[in-house]
Amino acid sequence: MEKPKVKKVNWKKELRLAPGYIILLLWVLFTFVLLGWVFGASLSTTPEIFKGNALKFESGLHFENYAKAWSGSNVSEFFVNSLVYATISCVVLILVCAPAAYVLSRYTFKLNKLIQTGFASAMGVPAVMVILPLFSMIASMGILNNVTLNRITLVLLYIGINVPYTTIFLMTFFSNISRTYEEAAAIDGCPPMKTFWKIMFPMAQTGLVTVTIFNFINVWNEYFLSLIFASSDKLRSVAVGLYGMINSMKYTGDWAGMFAAVVIVFLPTFILYIFLSEKIIGGVTGGIKG
């Protein structure tokens, strides 16, 4: 968690960890073979894939698969759209859900159980049953006829459908923090709300970062909501835009192109994941130790 320091290798320690290394290496190797195949297939040709030669590259590397996948649709616009949707919703989700999760996990009051149960059941209702009625309601209000309003609606919905998940996820992280911190703060005369933002919020950092990563990926990959609600091409998210491409490659039998499209979809999420987890966890948790 701390910034990597140049440390002398403690061989005794490393030896004890050897079984761990072996297990991890085996799994990583397995992952590499599998994902390597996907990546290899994206640079291969369809006949080679289905003859079982995806990784032999007998006819060379086919970067044109990527060119084809990229040029097919307005990819950069989809990217910007998704980035905006995902960033705004992730930030708002944390600001909305962290306080709620804190209160739900810390205080007992009449509606607490009811709210928790409501959130839990909301997670169990299949998305179709939520999204289609909402669509009928919102569409008949005429909101979708204006691009800006439509965009705002989309972001609000992304936030809304992830509220129960984020809240329930975060509850554990607050309930596991010892109450002594608040008690100490109270003695020092710090008001509870300030205590939350100054002390509890930073202490739940790992949970906040983890759930933000999940939320980001959820929104980035979200398909059904944007399919139904993005009434114009200008509003389309990456998932809808590029999954369309994946489908069209499938229907025209261009499997190599499909894998290239897949890599294009997943690469930004992966880079952002590394960015988010490494930079934020690395920069923050080091500073706050109980």
Binding site: V84, V91, I94, Q205, L272, F275, L276, I280
Partner: peptide, 18 residues
């Protein structure tokens, strides 16, 4: 801390839109 998260996120957006 919050500001830190925010600023990172925002810089990501800006970077990406650039």
């Amino acid at each position: 801390m919050k500001r830190k998260v925010l600023s990172v996120l925002l810089s990501v957006t800006m970077l990406a839109s650039l």
